[in-house]
Structures are given as C-alpha cells and as structure tokens.
Design a protein around this nucleic acid. Structure first.
Length: 578
RNA sequence: CGGGGCGUAGCUCAGCCUGGCUAGAGCGUCUGGUUUGGGACCAGAAGGUCGCAUGUUCGAAUCAUGUCGCCCCGACCA
C-alpha cells in the first residue's frame, strides 16, 4: 500500500483525554478514532492489525478442532429471560424494542452468546454420537459499560472470539478445556504477548474450572498474585494464601477503653483521627449469608474476600448486610461495628491474621465511639478462623516457601468450565448409548481481540511509538523513500515496493513528498518492525538502509537483490511467531 | 451511580479570575518559492454558532443557572 493512497492520520501531539500508552499511541498512530465514549472506528492501520490478530485466532481455533459459525448480534430478549440473565446483566444488556407489523418486538444486543449457541445446539444435537463439539465465532459484542475508559481496553462495543464446547461427559469437558487452554497459549505466543495464565474465580463450580489469560501492565484493571518460584498464579479474587505463621502477640495487653470518635467511621478516618496504623485496627463486617447475618473480622489493612467467606460459611449467596440489619445487630450506624458487645449474637468468623493481633482498635457498637485495647479471648470470642481475605503482596505462597507478588493485569482471555448451567436452563439434552437422556456439559472460552492490540502496545511501546511484533503489525515492512521528488530515488523505491509485493511481503510504501525526519518519526510511531530507506545517500554507493524498529543502529544492504534479502529477513521473523 | 476536571480553528492550547477594540498562538491544511537522512524555511491564504440554552448587563468566550458531551478517581463488571 502506498501511504499517499490510504488514510493514516498520524498526530504529533497527544489528543486531550488520552492518558495510557495504548490509547495515546493508537490515536497518534492513526489506528483508531473515537466516535463517542466507548466506541471507536478502526482506521486502515488499526483494522489491519485487528484482522491479523483475528487470523491467528482463527487458525489456532481451527487447528484445535473448533468450528466457526457466525451468530446474530441482535437477539430476542426471550432467550435471556430463560436463563435469568436479563436481571443478571441489568443495564449492561443493551435492550430495545423494534416495531414489526404494529407489534413491539423486544430485543437485546448480544453481550455474549451462551444462550444463542445453546439454543442452536439444542435444536441440532440430540445424540452422544454428535459430541464432542466445539463451535466458535469472532463477533462484535455489546455491553453498556457504566464507565467506558482506557481507550480500546474498556468499550461498549468490542470484538470477541467466543467458543463453546459441548460434551457428553466431564472427562470430555476436561479434554475440550485442555485443548482450548493449549490453543490460547499458542495464540498469545504467536501474537508476541507476554501473558500469564492464572487461576480465576469460577463461582459455585469451584476447582480448576476457570483460568484467565492476563497481560501484566500497570494500567490493568485486574489484580493477580504470582509466585515466581512455583509459578503459581491466580486472580486475587481467587488466590489462596499459604500457611501463615500467626503467633499470638507477646505485647502486654492494655485495658479496654472506649473513646469518643466523632464522625469517623472508615478505617482511614479512624486511623487518621487516632493517629494509628490500619493494621492495628480490626474491621467488623456484617454479612448476610443466605439471609442469615454473620460477623466477619478482618485486619484493618486487609480486604475481605467475599468468595472465600461464602465458601467458608457454606452459603450459596453472600452480600454485605443492609444498613438496617447492621444497625439492628450492632446497635450503631454503619462504621462503628465491633466484636465486643454486639446487640444480637451472630456467628463470628475471623481471618487467620486476626489471631495474631493484640490491643486492637474496634468499633464500639455505639455511634461515634471506638474501643482501643481490645484483645481476643479476653474481650471477645471468635467462633471460626479461616482464610477470608484477599492475598496481598508478601503473603506466603500456597505452593512454595516464596512470597507472593501482586501485579495489575489486563484480561485478554478466559476459559471456563460452565457445566450444565445453560444447557439445564434451556433444556439442551442428548441420548447416550444406553438410550438415557442427559444434559449436555458445556465450556466457554473468550478472547478480547481489541485487547490483544492494546496490551501489546501497553507492554511493548517505547518513547518513539509502537513496537509491533511482525505477526500483528499492520505491515511487515515500511519502505521510506527519502526525497521522493528525486527521480532516481522514486524509481528505485517504486521498484523495491513492487518486488516486495510480488514476493508476498506485507509492505507499506511511504511515497509522500515529505522531509526524511517526518517519515522516520511516522515510521517509528506506527511501529512497523522493519524499515527500508531508499535515499540518495545510499543509492550513490548502490545501497539501501535496513533498520529494525527494535534496534538502535541501521545496516546497509546492496540494492541488487535487496527485495529477496528483505523477504528472507521477513520470512525468518515471521517464523518466530508460528 | 458518588467525587473531581475539561469543552475556544482539523489538533494542542492561551484569553475567562478583574465583562469592553476586529477572539489569539503553535502545529496541520491550501498557494507560490527555496529546501531534502530524524517532525525545514520564506511569503501569502483559508479555517471559529467560543459545546448548547436561558438569564444578568448598555455590552458576555469571560458572570449566574440549567443542560449536553468528553476525561479521570471510586463503585459496578455475565
């Protein structure tokens, strides 16, 4: 492609509102244009990269035995009602009515396609002989994000590869899952991404039913913990904490004293008011576990993990109790709860670290009052100790003697053993070889295609712009003619461009009548891995200049046979991402 | 949905607090010329409902109220 004949609106300045590298650089490189919050047009350069990521995904899905389909983005609301996900999604689901022959037809834009695919499979699959089956599509998804942000990382419309496996046995599901897991590893490797497969929260199914594929970057919205020694990695929502050596504190117990703490309910406010550290405080959370209240004690600087609490107490549903319940149990407004002197006796659960605390600061179960010097056993009792909090930096690893590290990440893929949640709700069944009817066992597997691009830019760019891996770069080679007005230069670069095209190289030809500096800056900005400069300086010696985007120095190659030499380099580079 | 910020030329921004000449600059665009290896130079030109509405005032980009849009922090995220 000739630069002069396409649309690559590069920008020297950073547009207002763009802050993180991927957003800034995608805008500056002329890859995308914002239409409104959470919706972007992919311009020629951006769309080429997106399609390259898509192509890799498609290849690996096909290799893994998945079969491509294409489902509608518009869906009847009735499907979502069958599984109760109209409520579950809430405002995230984009709902609308369409008039047809004077009647309103309620619809929704697909935010994901479990219901649609299950409906499809229910219609056409009825025998174990037809299983296993894995179907996938690459399709635009719609989710009304409350707050779209971070450029292309969090949008209301995005491209997703979603695959769904259907099996007759749990072993079959495990095999389908493993195949997808392996395909995902291959896909992200081929995209040149440094990724981490982490154990993810899998809801009531539990076990190893879910993994997320994460890209580590400070601008990520997810948090994972990682043990460099055992390679254990998990989402904080899920992460186990290793054996904690919680020794009873040897500090001399102080008397329990009530203090007036006006208008300071939060941990932060109390620690500021009493000039103490959050880890000296004990927070008391009143939860409603299957509609029965419980108290949960967590050290002030830790975060409660509701999934852990839910599993520990053996509840199906768990949520923070409403204000009314809290006031009834503690006799105080929210923010002043404590384990000493609760008005209503409820089971008290505590995180393991609480056992090592002494002279805690706790709410006094009285508005605007706290106790200091509260001590376990003397002042209050705990019914059960368990791991109830999120893992934190420096916690012991559950798999080795190393300490856990905490990292921010972007989720680029997710594999999930669904079980029979949707097939049950929608009645997707099959007959086995004994003519017995069973519910089909499902798995679902998603990849955020746009996020592959954004994550690459987040992690691989430099001060001059994007640094693409050859597999995702919109073009493999850029030919920059320096002084395009010079007839000799123009002829030589035209020829090289034509030859590279004939050799099957994806080449962008910067034929603009621009000064060299402009062309070099733009080439760096858009991040094409290999740059070939055709200029008077080299031509005099019969040479062309080659420069890799990742390298500082350029090298000269002879003009004669240059196209073949470049094609060979491209082939070698391509091979790294196969 | 809570908190904060910003809307002036295609882009980045100044002007606003303290109302008053014809609303500015840089970049980009167009014309002509000189240039040509890391965002050139000279001369000229086009380009604006100052987000929108209402109000205050002799007079509003500037003050007030409302509204819309965008960005950031938090909550939420199958």
């Amino acid at each position: 492609m000739r630069w002069s004949q396409t649309l690559i609106p590069t920008m020297k300045e950073t547009p207002e509102g763009a802050e993180i590298p991927s957003h800034v650089l995608m805008l500056r490189a002329g890859m995308i244009n914002q239409l409104m919050a959470g919706a972007y047009t992919y311009l020629p350069l951006g769309y080429r990269s997106l399609r390259k990521a898509e192509a890799i995904i498609r290849e690996e899905m096909d290799k893994a035995g998945a079969v491509e389909v294409h489902m509608p983005a518009i869906t009847p609301i009735s499907l979502w009602e069958q599984t109760g996900r109209v409520e579950a999604f809430g405002d995230v689901l984009i709902k609308f009515d369409v008039r047809r022959q004077g009647k309103k037809v309620p619809m929704a834009l697909g935010p994901t396609h479990e219901e649609i695919i299950t409906d499809l499979v229910k219609k056409f699959v009825s025998s174990y002989r037809q299983l296993p089956l894995t179907l996938y599509q690459i399709q635009t998804k719609f989710r009304n994000e409350e707050r779209p942000r971070f450029g292309v990382l969090r949008t209301s419309e995005f491209l997703m590869k979603d695959a769904y496996s259907f099996d007759s046995t749990v072993e079959g599901l495990n095999a389908s899952y493993d195949k997808m897991y392996a395909a995902y590893c291959k896909i992200f490797e081929r995209c040149g991404l440094d990724y981490l497969a982490v154990e993810a929260e899998s809801g009531p199914i539990g076990g190893d039913a879910s993994h997320e594929f994460m890209c580590i970057t400070p601008n990520g919205e997810d948090t994972v913990v990682y043990d460099p020694k055992s390679k254990y990695a998990a989402n904080v929502e899920r992460a186990e904490i290793g054996k904690r050596n919680v020794a009873k504190s040897s500090v001399e117990p102080k008397p329990l004293t009530k203090l007036h703490t006006p208008n300071v309910g939060s941990i932060e406010a109390v620690s500021k008011f009493l000039k103490c550290k959050p880890h000296q405080m004990l927070k008391t959370l009143i939860y409603s576990a299957d509609d029965r209240p419980i108290a949960v004690l967590i050290r002030g600087d830790h975060e409660a993990n509701e999934n852990k609490v839910r599993r520990a107490v053996g509840a199906k549903k768990l949520a923070l109790a409403d204000n009314e319940t809290v006031e009834k149990i503690t006799g105080a407004p929210v923010g002043f709860a404590g384990p000493v002197g609760l008005k209503v006796a409820v089971p008290i659960w505590a995180d393991e670290d609480v056992a090592g605390m002494a002279n805690c600061i706790i709410g006094a179960n009285e508005g605007d009052h706290h106790y200091v010097g509260a001590n376990l056993d003397r002042d209050f009792k705990v019914d059960h100790f368990a791991d109830l909090r999120n893992a934190a930096e420096g916690d012991p690893s559950p798999r080795s003697d190393a300490k856990l590290e905490v990292r921010k990440t972007v989720e680029i893929g997710h594999v999930f053993k669904l079980g029979t949640k949707y097939s049950d709700a929608m009645g997707a069944k099959f007959l086995d070889d004994k003519e017995q009817q069973h519910t089909i066992i499902m798995g679902c597997y998603g990849i955020g295609v746009n996020r592959i691009l954004a994550s690459l830019i987040e992690t691989k760019s430099d001060a001059n712009g994007i640094v693409w891996p050859m597999s995702i770069s919109p073009y493999e080679v850029i030919v920059s003619s320096v002084n395009a007005a010079d007839a000799e230069v123009a002829a030589a670069s035209d020829k090289l461009y034509a030859e590279l095209q004939a050799l099957g190289v994806d080449v962008l030809y910067d034929d603009r009548d621009q000064r060299p500096g402009v062309k070099f800056k733009d080439a760096d900005l858009i991040g094409v891995p290999l740059r070939v400069v055709v200029g008077g300086r080299g031509l005099k010696e019969g040479n062309l200049e080659l420069k890799w985007r990742t390298k500082e120095a350029a090298e000269m190659i002879p003009l004669a046979g240059a196209a073949e030499a470049v094609a060979k380099l491209v082939a070698a580079e391509r091979a790294k991402y196969k």
